[in-house]
Design a protein around this nucleic acid. Structure first.
Lengths: 218, 218, 218, 218
DNA sequence: TATGAATGAGTCTTCATTCAT
DNA sequence: TATGAATGAAGACTCATTCAT
């Protein structure tokens, strides 16, 4: 937290000038670095210098790609969505089989994405910074959270319509499913990092799915 | 030499008496103010001045009660535990009735406490600051989360032993229950604040309990 | 230098209210405490609180006797002169014997006073704070150093007139004698404190006197 | 969130180019400025801002060269030693002529160095801050003071061995010589600054040397 | 484009001084 | 008179941002 000491050392021999990568690549590298730093220390405690260092550039260069720290944070949140969520809607629409399998598929897909990418920490970030960046939170809420909830509601609704699930409140049901994913994402990137042995989040999700589906059974 | 001179101007009408209050009261007021500020902006972005203002004192006074900002944060986390969790263990030990009712009781109690006090935001804070305050996170983990998990495991174990629940993995089971509480606490104090109409977290918990208990049925 | 930590402990049981001493006594106690603290840490680094504690009173009470920190420093310098120097002039005026003995007597007397009282540190203080308190330095210069120089000049002048000393520049001669005293005073209260074994300042003065008197011999 | 925004106003005409200077030069400029300020006001009363202003840079830049105020003070003391003192030892070792001339040469050399550079004030500083920086004082004591004393002892010892000086205590003798230099250094940079007309310190030293040498004569 | 030294506003913290008791 | 909690201006230090190179 503390102890940031600079030393004006004697011009460390720099490696040969890195080839100038494609601007977009560079931009992504910055976001990548920012994500790691923000995730670790939060927005305020993250130093532009550290971020630059991690991205392999100098602090000044950051400002060639983003106007300021806030812009980096915003881009991070806004650009990390990609097409993932909308793909889910597609999958759901085309699905022909039983609803419980659809639910399993969707949850596993989301979870897989969160685990493979580092995007899980964005949950944590947004949650921590809601007060400081309400606009951004709103954006995230709209484009990510609500979207997922809609997908889950759709699946439950489908299941009920097909007589596979008992009739429950869609809102609550969707949030239940969502809460599992959120719990995993948050725990893994916060208190879970304190565990010496890694907890099997995949199994947790499976068990929870089982339980939810049992509970949904008519 | 510039011996610091109090500005001899104005003699602004000062706020209410600055003397009366009992030290411990004052201390609690500071923690109260700190909680609100930290919850809203996070540790780094919280200004000591704002905190003081909210507590109705001057910034210097903060330092009569805590040696620095970090100490306030630590006290906040460490002192907010109270006897709540241990009381739960007591309740559990003495319970004679069916395990599902015990589970409902315990979950409702915890939830009630989190809602009535402002302690729910501590979850959010700890999660956001795990990277910056690992020691504190460890403390919280040990004294709060692990404790709750143990309680839940105890209830599930009891239910299984009494034939009320089917045999499931205790660890996963406990985390499922815990995730509901955590989700509620976090959501309410972050993205949930963006909702214009308030979501009924109580009902969510109840619905989720129903679902879990259904899922636990043999 | 650093690390001043306050603790708002629980009303340490104070001893029975000290009897209120005579105001002048109290005043002297404060100056005494101030001298020690200033000597040790200098003007700026001395805390009013420490000073009060050392004087056995509370910080607020200091302000019943002095209007501010500066005033304490000034009083310290101005009041420590006492009648010492003027007594010397008296001694000199009445002296009938040889000038070398007079010089020895005077130097020993001054040295004895400096050693017995803690006034030696005032030299150090004034020297360190000349830039911050030019007025005070001027005062000291006028009332202490110049006074001493005059006395020494008088003795040398007397010695020359009586054929006991060779003819030398009075100004330089007086400063030579003065420099010995000053060196002793300053060294003893600064770098000399680092010595494990105490250096014999008395002997040093005697040896130096011998040398000076030899040098002054016609 | 209040990401710090450079005030976009005015674009005040900035001072001369801020880039050119060599890091080491810059560093020396800071030490130079620090010396002046410390000498004038002492360590505590010196403001980092004033120091920066005097060095022609901004306060933040100070911290690119030194980690904090204390480090500047330390560097000042430690780096100002240079090779001066050790050169003296060399001179002494090679000297073939009479000891009194050697002594004159050495004392004049030291005095000349102290006068030409501003290093004389370091004496004053160290003396004032012994209590606050004992380590530093010890360093100075070891590397400067004791070193000089050793040189003087060597010369006296040489003189005695060659029958040029009478037998006196080396310790006291060396301190006598040293006290002259110290007196000059301290007086000139403290109470001496109050003199309207400048006192001729050079002559004082010469007169004192005469006196000491007379006193040392067999 | 890229760099990183330089800037200076902003923050935490200290402590001389005040004043209700 | 005496106390010491409270105050808030001031100072050390940080770090987002700029800009000469």
């Amino acid at each position: 937290m503390k102890a940031r000491r600079r030393k004006l050392v004697e011009k460390v021999v720099k490696g040969p000038a890195r080839w100038h990568r494609h601007p977009e690549t560079r931009r992504q590298e910055i976001l990548e670095a920012a994500l790691v730093n923000f995730a670790e220390k939060g927005f305020s405690a993250t130093r532009m210098n550290d971020m630059a260092r991690r991205a392999g550039i100098s602090s000044g260069t950051l400002y060639l790609y983003f106007i300021n720290k806030e812009a980096i944070f915003k881009s991070l949140v806004e650009e990390s969505l990609g097409t993932q969520v909308s793909q889910l809607t597609q999958v759901m629409r085309e699905w022909e089989g039983p609803s419980d399998e659809l639910l399993r598929l969707v949850v596993r897909t989301i979870n897989g994405f969160l685990r493979s990418s580092d995007r899980a920490v964005l949950f944590k970030l947004i949650i921590a910074e809601t007060g400081n960046f309400p606009e951004l939170a709103r954006f995230y809420r709209h484009h990510v959270t609500d979207h997922m909830l809609t997908v889950f509601e759709g699946i439950i609704s489908r299941g009920i319509a097909r007589g596979e699930f008992r009739r429950i409140d869609l809102t609550d049901g969707a949030r239940m499913i969502f809460s599992s994913i959120m719990f995993t994402a948050i725990w893994r990137t916060s208190l879970g990092t304190l565990d010496s042995e890694s907890y099997d989040y995949g199994r947790f999700i499976e068990t929870k799915l089982d339980l939810i589906l049992r509970g949904l059974a008519p």
